[in-house]
């Protein structure tokens, strides 16, 4: 019998962030928001309108924004910074390293337009290295939710976690398929489909692609287990190991460089414990380019057929 995953609507993950931030503004008076001239793009305008005294427009000066946020924690504020993922990480790496991570400041670095799927703006804006940059920093939590509902839940959840967090989301409207009322637990993987033949660990926009791949694999008689790794760091090692113990082979899928991404974290875990055949659906040491999100996912081999192909390949190596 065929399996089919469904979604309720299509929405952008950044709007999930904006909705979550607005809720936080209502429930927690210590939450403040800072934005470097991308309020509309980050969907922070509702928060700005509702809480103007707690919204800080920094202009196009991201380094200062990160420093301001670090300073605002002194006095008990919980700052959420917002700009594109490229300007949230690479541009301000040393500021995050020294003033936030090393200083253990309770700053939430919220980053939209991550990966290839920002589309037409091209490679200058399509950061594919941000997960790696952020996960290398001691003390940093790295989260990449998969849809609108999960991004909203994650935004609300990270305010309760004391310490620096990198929250990564994106620009395009994508299927919204996780429950609206989900409890988001940092560091807890979510199994979306049981399977016995191959473990597919996906993050961000590629979680939906992995589910679609599972449908096709099912048609081919391959029973894939699909696990949503929304928290790349700390990695849910127990969930990964339990799944791999059952299936014996692994595919990872992410909108990021292979170097430094989710796949790299899982490979490290398995190499230390139980090495198994593994395939990586990720960008392989290249920059992106202009195009529609869907065209780019096809060209850079991050689409459903690529996950299917990787699953077949890794099964053959098992």
């Amino acid at each position: 019998m065929a399996i089919q995953f469904t979604f309720t609507d299509q929405n952008d993950t950044r709007s999930g962030f904006g909705a979550g931030l607005l809720e936080l503004g209502k429930s927690n008076p210590n939450v403040v928001a800072l934005c470097a001239d991308l309020t509309g793009s980050l969907k922070m305008d509702a928060f700005e309108a509702a809480f103007p005294e707690r919204f800080f427009q920094t202009g196009i000066a991201e380094a200062n924004m990160i420093g301001l946020a670090a300073g605002m924690t002194i006095g008990g504020k919980i700052p959420f910074t917002g700009t594109f993922a490229n300007f949230s990480t690479g541009r301000v790496y040393d500021q995050i390293r020294q003033s936030v991570a090393y200083s253990d400041k309770n700053v939430k670095i919220c980053a939209s337009h991550a990966g290839l799927t920002l589309g037409e703006d091209g490679a200058t804006h399509q950061i594919l290295e941000d997960i790696g940059l952020m996960k290398m920093l001691p003390n940093m939590v790295v989260i990449n939710p998969c849809d609108y509902n999960q991004t909203k839940a994650a935004t609300i959840a990270i305010a309760k976690h004391h310490g620096p967090v990198y929250l990564r989301f994106g620009r395009p409207k994508v299927p919204n398929f996780t429950p609206a009322d989900q409890a988001f637990e940092i560091g807890k993987a979510v199994k979306l489909k049981d399977g016995k033949d191959v473990s597919i660990f996906a993050t961000g926009h590629l979680v939906w692609k992995a589910l679609k791949a599972a449908e096709q694999l099912h048609e081919m008689g391959i029973d894939a287990e699909i696990i949503n790794i929304h928290t790349i760091k700390p990695l849910d090692e127990a969930a990964v190991l339990a799944s791999v113990a059952k299936t014996g082979c692994v595919v990872t899928a992410e909108e990021h460089q292979r170097n430094g991404g989710l796949g790299d974290s899982i490979a490290q875990l398995l190499a230390r414990t139980t090495p198994r055949p593994m395939e990586f659906v990720a960008v392989n040491d290249s920059f992106g380019e202009s195009g529609t999100p869907e065209e780019l996912l096809v060209k850079y081999k991050l689409d459903t057929p690529d996950i299917v192909q990787a699953a077949k390949a890794v099964l053959a190596r098992r």
């Binding site: 200062n64 420093g67 300073g71 002194i74």
Partner: peptide
């Protein structure tokens, strides 16, 4: 300076 300003805003 950014950090000090943040503390001042706080």
């Amino acid at each position: 300076l950014s950090v000090a300003l943040g503390a001042a805003l706080s």
